[in-house]
């Protein structure tokens, strides 16, 4: 007996569906917190250039490593730059790059996964072998190779991140497709003689969409983690662009006497990752998918 069958709803517009999902997400405390943090960061990313009190690259040797004060809320760093200014600007690059990176990951990972799940057999075997091989190179080594090969521009980072974080989506999409194509409604569509394209578009995608979107949301938080690790190692955004990973890396050596310059970016980055993660979690729960069984690969 299905307990949630009780409420008879009518067909809804897409807008109504999306808003219903968001309301469901926000109705849990963790989802509400996650969504609020994420929205806060997104808004901040849009408005920060206009509200930042100082110039993020203005070096002032006389103001080196000042403790937090009314004038410099979060203190200043080793070059005398305002930490508050750099902190509120520090998420923009990361957020933009990983957002578009996730979209790319979703797109190619989802499509390839559906394709593999659908054709099965030898083609599927070979493609999955290759995906497996890519998986078995630690992401950080692969990313470092690419970055040292092609540089650290946005045009390189977005597709590279998208590529490496998409392989997990391939697996999820493939597994979901496998489950769906065994169902009788696919058999029925095939027996009627629908084209492969029509079967993928009308029958498969609506049924695997949720699983893939949840996976994509999850990838986003991991990609952010990966990207900031790259920045931290000096292979991400190049100075003087403010970036949390880079700021933490720079301020790390001085933290025994100027801890403020490392705390602010840590709070910024951690809260964003947690926000995305909680949101992804709530999103999965709102769609009825358990995401905790998935490995972070």
């Amino acid at each position: 007996m299905k307990l949630d069958n009780i409420y008879q709803e009518e067909k809804k517009s897409n807008f109504a569906k999306v808003s219903e999902i968001i309301i469901t997400m926000a109705s849990r405390p963790s989802g509400f917190i996650g969504l609020s943090i994420l929205i806060f960061h997104v808004i901040l990313a849009f408005i920060s250039p206009y509200v930042a009190p100082y110039d993020f690259k203005a070096i002032n040797p006389t103001l080196m490593l000042q403790a937090p004060s009314a004038e410099y809320w979060f203190g200043t760093d080793d070059l005398g730059r305002d930490v508050f200014t750099r902190t509120i600007l520090g998420g923009r690059t990361a957020l933009t790059i990983t957002f578009f990176g996730s979209l790319i990951a979703l797109l190619w990972g989802g499509l390839l996964g559906i394709f593999c799940g659908l054709v099965g057999g030898k083609t599927d075997d070979i493609v999955m072998r290759i995906v497996d091989a890519f998986l078995s190179i630690p992401w950080i080594l692969a990313m470092l190779l690419i970055v040292s090969l092609l540089g650290t521009s946005t045009e390189v980072l977005i597709p590279a991140l998208g590529f490496f974080y998409g392989k997990g989506i391939v697996r999820v999409a493939r597994a979901a497709t496998h489950d769906v194509i065994a169902k009788d409604f696919i058999v029925s569509a095939r027996a009627r003689g629908h084209s492969n394209f029509s079967i993928i578009w009308n029958e498969i995608i609506p049924n695997v969409r949720d699983a893939i979107l949840v996976e994509g949301a999850m990838r986003w938080s991991w990609m952010l983690l990966g990207f900031s690790s790259l920045s931290f190692l000096g292979f991400g955004v190049s100075p003087p662009t403010p970036d949390w990973g880079l700021m933490i890396s720079n301020a790390r050596g001085l933290m025994s006497f100027a801890y403020w310059s490392v705390i602010a970016p840590i709070v910024g980055l951690s809260s964003l990752i947690i926000g995305i993660n909680l949101t992804a979690d709530a999103f999965a729960k709102a769609l009825g998918i358990d995401r905790s069984t998935k490995a972070p690969v």
Binding site: D184, V187, S188, A191, E203
Partner: peptide
């Protein structure tokens, strides 16, 4: 294909949810 149509055992599985 049109002249032969199928009805399945379990309508939960044969109708796209």
């Amino acid at each position: 294909l049109r002249i032969i149509q199928l009805i399945f055992q379990n309508p939960d599985e044969s109708l796209n949810p």
